[in-house]
Amino acid sequence: MLELIHSIREKSRELLAAGRVDGVLCLARDRFDVVQPRLILRAEKTGSIETSPKWNLAKLALRTLRRAGPSFRLAVACRGCDERALLELAKRNQFDPTRITLLGYTCSREQAESCLCDRPYPEKPAAGEKIEGVDPFADPRVSALLTGDEGERTARWTGLLGRCIKCYGCRNACPICVCTPCKLEDDLWVERAVVPTELIPYHLIRAFHLSDTCVACGACQDACPVGIPLLALQLVMRRRLRERYGYEAGLEADRKSPLLMDFDHASPAGFELPAWTVSSEAPHER
């Protein structure tokens, strides 16, 4: 662990000293002993860099790049989930990926278990060894939420989602929720200034918008003040995308989402209709 931190500090120092980047976005300990995200601009300050706690930096990186001038180059010292989130943001033209240098570090076994992460490492780690991930569906915290028939599920999820105080924390914490304007702030979809919120529009629209983008970092559920297990909704949709199309958000930079974006290569041949579709492939002369 200490080696990993030293390696990240050293690499950040080298990048800044060589002038290859103008700033390093990372977690750092300040003089009050508080660890929080900081933008480090000078090489001699890199000794304060930390790698925990978990803190999603993707949205901050985006904001930093937008506020700084177009020539500002940024290094981000982050975990694997941040790397995937940044890749998804770049795919959606939120920033120019050539301006970002990634200093990814791997997570430990305990960290992977606490996040239920099946990929606790960046694709090209700058520090640390890749370790095997955790299967989130094997964990009772997730699998218990996904059992039962429609009645039981409705009772469970209306109870869980009914706790919501509509703080928009899940949306704000999500590294990928960056749309402006946001549908959750539009009276047509979700009535504003009404608490508690309507369950279907607020929660299911939010969950569906991330169905093919979610990198399963768990920031939404970490941010939730009433402890709604929001990640379970995303995990199911992620698994289905992987089963159906072999697609996983945040891995392939040049592959568009098969769900929403791919208007060009959906070949009619070989595409299997889901069983619930009622297709009217009846003979015409009836």
Partner: peptide
């Protein structure tokens, strides 16, 4: 086809939460 894929994914979500 896009409609099929999207609605299929929405169906997954509806199944998960129990609307079906």
């Amino acid at each position: 086809h896009v409609a099929v894929k999207r609605m299929e994914a929405l169906g997954d979500l509806l199944d998960t939460v129990g609307i079906g």
